[in-house]
Write a protein that binds this DNA or RNA. Sequence first.
DNA 1: AGGCGCTTGTGAAGGCGTGCACAAATCGCG
DNA 2: CGCGATTTGTGCACGCCTTCACAAGCGCCT
Lengths: 256, 256
Amino acid sequence: MSQHRHPGAPGRAGAVPALPDLPEATVARLPEYLRALHNLAETGHETVSSEGLASAAGVNSAKLRKDLSHLGSYGTRGVGYDVALLIDQIEYVLGLTQRRAVALVGVGNLGHALAGYDGFVSRGFRIAALFDADAARVGEEINGLVVRHIDELPRVAAEEAIAIGVIATPASAAQSVADQLVAVGVTSILNFAPCVLSVPEGVDLRKVDLAIELQILSFHEHRKASLTALPATGGSALTALPGGLAVTDPQEAIGT
Amino acid sequence: MSQHRHPGAPGRAGAVPALPDLPEATVARLPEYLRALHNLAETGHETVSSEGLASAAGVNSAKLRKDLSHLGSYGTRGVGYDVALLIDQIEYVLGLTQRRAVALVGVGNLGHALAGYDGFVSRGFRIAALFDADAARVGEEINGLVVRHIDELPRVAAEEAIAIGVIATPASAAQSVADQLVAVGVTSILNFAPCVLSVPEGVDLRKVDLAIELQILSFHEHRKASLTALPATGGSALTALPGGLAVTDPQEAIGT
DNA sequence: AGGCGCTTGTGAAGGCGTGCACAAATCGCG
DNA sequence: CGCGATTTGTGCACGCCTTCACAAGCGCCT
Ligand SMILES: NC(=O)c1ccc[n+]([C@@H]2O[C@H](COP(=O)([O-])OP(=O)(O)OC[C@H]3O[C@@H](n4cnc5c(N)ncnc54)[C@H](O)[C@@H]3O)[C@@H](O)[C@H]2O)c1
Ligand SMILES: NC(=O)c1ccc[n+]([C@@H]2O[C@H](COP(=O)([O-])OP(=O)(O)OC[C@H]3O[C@@H](n4cnc5c(N)ncnc54)[C@H](O)[C@@H]3O)[C@@H](O)[C@H]2O)c1
């Protein structure tokens, strides 16, 4: 509809215009496209069709085209999308050109793994600091970073511009940690602790809960079992299912 | 719409009847309710209102009531829900009464953390086996379990009824591992490797990608910054936004 | 026993997301 | 220079999900 503003119309994609407000579902898929694009770029592809990129990202091609159309027209009809240009565009939209600083709080079992994870760095982020409350852990060096005491958070936050806080503490400490992060100006939090956090409006909160993922799988497992076990028993809705056990299409990434 | 099947129509809720086919969005929230309910049970609550449970789980109370109504009528008007009964119901529906066996493949950085995670056990699962391809890692004992070589997967799968496979290998090995899991009859897979996996129909696949979560947060961060920086610049869609920077919706915590 | 307050369960409306199907646009080639 | 092959961008319809609002149901108190 209306006219699409062509961001870098004349050519350069540097000083891009205002951010379009994308549908949340689209935002959740852009990182997926980005990863697929990087793979394509590494294997020498200069352009890619919506079909090709869609299958590389594991989505429907119509969905992909609609998603990309939200950022403007960066494809060429009859040809496809320029891989390098699209990478630049998506990275810009996602705000990955700034290598945001991430603070990790809770350097235990999981925290250690996260601190040593190279996916942080390779995909646009920078671990700026590690924090823990346990004096025994403070001072330990992981991957070139020294674990600091959580009380130092305000001071460190003043030095580094911490954009994102990652919580990997026990659930009992998570709300307190979240409060402290918010207090020093962090406006995005990723929470690994299995609990509900409350944060003020304006602060974005996402959660990763392994047990929930497993329980969702368990449900489908249970359902599949009950279908094969008693094929014509349950009645009504169950047997009314057409294909039986079609893979649902998990990850909203939205969500979820 | 259509006919609603009230599971335990005649009464008893013990040997529950056929599984209702729940909306996917509901399934994804049930684990959240379950965790909140366990917390409530531990703090001595015998019943809870939809409002109370909803805020404990971080959702809207209407949504919660509709979700629960899909499993049947287990609440009492004017009173609320019986906590213990609801726990039983949800655990049954999610198939958690069977303590499903989980196999973890890839005992590296992340795999170690997962293997030592007590959330597996405390929330209805059982780690049945650990696998790795690296001979140097095979034989290592973690949390009472010995790491086995991935080649032993078929044999172990024959002994233990592995319900869920968790992939924590590098992305390059993930598809191969998934194929091997499928080959031995695993029909649910949780993938931590940042790549798209393809599995046959009938196999459920979920994915956890830390970098994607961070990139989604980065987008909102970027957007918030561009809003406050140039309040009336962008034009069109941006200024058309009503509330400005309302937190999108992710897993917002509303409770107090 | 009856009324009153509280809470559930749900009908209906609106919004969002998905996928189809096709017109518009671009390239390559004769 | 025009035509056909190809692929994008999108209008549209449908279905899922969310949310509101309220009638029905339940317990308690008088
Ligand atoms: N280990 C896993 O694989 C895994 C998987 C999914 C989720 N989780 C969740 O992630 C969280 C961490 O798990 P873990 O296994 O690493 O636990 P852990 O006990 O090994 O580590 C927790 C760390 O947090 C630190 N801590 C406690 N209170 C703190 C505070 N107020 N401020 C700063 N640091 C504090 C502790 O000192 C400890 O080092 C838990 O909530 C767990 O449920 C873990
Ligand atoms: N470390 C983290 O915090 C983290 C976070 C998110 C995602 N991930 C992802 O999880 C995966 C594992 O990360 P990591 O840091 O533990 O890596 P890692 O290299 O430490 O561990 C990978 C393990 O998988 C094993 N492996 C390799 N090929 C195998 C095969 N074919 N069969 C069985 N085992 C095999 C390796 O021997 C190694 O022990 C990666 O895909 C990574 O991107 C890691």
